[in-house]
Amino acid sequence: MTAATPGFVKLLSITFVLAIAVYMLVPLIVVIASSLSTSQFLVFPPPGFSLRWYTEVFNSDAYLSAGWTSLKLALFTVAASVALGTPAAIALSRFRFPGRSFLSAIFLSPLLLPSLIFAIGLLIVFSRYGDGPSLTGLVIGHTVITLPYVIRTVSANLIDMDPHLDEAARIMGARWWQRYLLVILPQCRTGMAAGAFFAFNISFDDAVIALFMRAPNVETLPMRIYSTLEFSPDPSVAAVSTIMILLTIFMVLLLDRIFGLSKIA
């Protein structure tokens, strides 16, 4: 057999892919390395190895309470966006109604519009009609930007679903609510899990909306990192970032364990 692609082209494309991987991973490596530093300051390469900044983080009330706030925020966001996004995806995929494609576009718009614009809008709405920024406000804001992910991932599940499942269930005597609960919803499981994963990460990671919706008593982890960087940058920031990276990796592994990544991505 003759090679369809000349050797040097193959070599070139492999080099290119490797370069992209390096480009993506270097910042992570820099952050992780800096977190293990002995230095007082955020410098790279670190002068020596120590875990003191991790001890620092776990003894800091500011980090711990910010972490707790972020965790609560992310979990509420996940719950809200999965609870709203799954039925929305089911309705969009199953029913033909006027304005359907318009609604699809609306639901995807947070993916396309800069979150800054949303943040400004949210701030105006909450200042005018609510009692200003709050955790609830943040949950609502994050739900808006994470919903499209859930709708996307669940829709992908529904596209793959055998279109005859619902009819088969009817023939077998299932009433409409039994079909939603026992037939359609179970087909959305991987999409719901993937959507939840995205929602968690986006919420846990978000600094833009959190910055605009900053309430006096609500500080999320990204905001804590941001203000530390601004006023007293030290390697604790890198330590927190490393913990966030590990959390993400852990969740990816968990998802893979339960559903298999190939089904989700």
Binding site: A168, A169, G173, P186
Partner: peptide, 15 residues
């Protein structure tokens, strides 16, 4: 769902 019939689909439609 109110008729006592069975239908086997071409795609089988197993859950």
């Amino acid at each position: 769902e109110m008729r006592n019939i069975a239908l086997m689909f071409q795609s089988y439609a197993l859950l």
